[in-house]
């Protein structure tokens, strides 16, 4: 693989990681901890929303984030000629 190609591949990887990690940080830390009182005004059935984010929602989100990363990166690997 050429240097230039390798660099664009790596940049794309970094951009994807950065985007997903921002979501990874913001939702549980801001939604579930820092501004939890604000979100607790809203309800999801019997759950206060902030409490739900901290004890349920964020965990589901983590699963989704990993699969989004895996599918996007695996596709990128194919585009950039993964022989494996």
């Amino acid at each position: 693989m050429q240097d230039k190609q390798q660099r664009t591949y790596w940049q794309a990887n970094l951009r994807l990681i950065a985007t997903l990690l921002i979501i990874w940080f913001v939702v549980p830390i801001l939604g579930g901890i820092v501004f939890v009182d604000f979100f607790n005004q809203f309800r999801l059935g019997g759950y206060k929303l902030g409490f739900w984010i901290a004890q349920q929602g964020a965990i589901y989100l983590f699963v989704v984030l990993i699969f989004v990363y895996a599918f996007k990166m695996n596709k990128l690997d194919d585009e950039y000629g993964d022989q494996a």
Binding site: I17, W24, P28, A54, A58, I59, F62, I66, A70
Partner: peptide, 14 residues
């Protein structure tokens, strides 16, 4: 709950 699951996101990406 957050700490022991959120770590896997770091592990998977980084």
């Amino acid at each position: 709950l957050l700490g022991w699951t959120g770590g896997y996101v770091l592990l998977a990406m980084c």
